[in-house]
Computed example of a mutant assay.
Amino acid sequence: MAQRACDAALAHAGLDPDAYEVALLACDDDRIAALNAQFRGKEQPTNVLSWPSERRTPGVPPGDAELGDIAISFDTCAREAAMQGKPFEAHVTHLIVHAVLHLLGHDHEVDAEAEAMEQAERRILAKLGLPDPYEDGIS
């Protein structure tokens, strides 16, 4: 699931998935809460965190094969998937795609950037045969 999600996001960006590396830590809520506190100053669990290896601009090919690191909490993902009535695998795949897009320079701090990122996620997930994660307004 993780490899497929990473490969799809990279291919969508026009990149050869075999040419890039992403480190992925699958963890529980305690570990991700500690990471969230350490790096974002938020002392609570979250679903996914990402750390790009360098600052990037969307659409510009990375100069480094090591894109960065992702941490994902399966505890939070399981709760969110159940609350949203989504299959666990589809939700985790969406969050990994989302995190890889962050590693490639995408962000969602500004509405236009958020919309572009969501559209990319929708297209990538559709190619994987997964439903639109934003269809019902729950992300």
Rank of each mutant, 00 (worst) to 15 (best):
F88V: 03
H12F: 15
A82C: 05
A33R: 15
D132W: 05
F88S: 02
D111G: 05
E43F: 05
E89L: 10
R79D: 11
E113S: 15
K127Y: 01
K42H: 11
Q38L: 15
H91F: 14
V100W: 04
Q44K: 13
S50K: 01
H102E: 04
H91M: 11
N36Q: 13
R40C: 14
V60K: 14
E121H: 06
E118N: 15
D30E: 13
E118Y: 09
A5Y: 04
A33C: 10
N47K: 03
A19S: 13
V110I: 13
H108F: 12
Y20I: 01
D30G: 03
L125P: 03
R31C: 05
I124H: 02
D18F: 00
A13L: 06
D29C: 01
R79E: 14
S139Q: 05
A71I: 03
C6L: 12
G137E: 08
E66I: 01
A120G: 09
R55G: 07
E21M: 03
N47P: 00
I70H: 08
Y134R: 02
G41E: 06
K127T: 15
D75N: 08
G63I: 03
C27R: 07
K86M: 12
N36K: 08
I32P: 10
E118W: 11
A26L: 13
I138M: 10
D69Y: 15
R56I: 09
A90P: 03
A112F: 10
T57L: 14
Q3S: 09
E66S: 07
E43T: 04
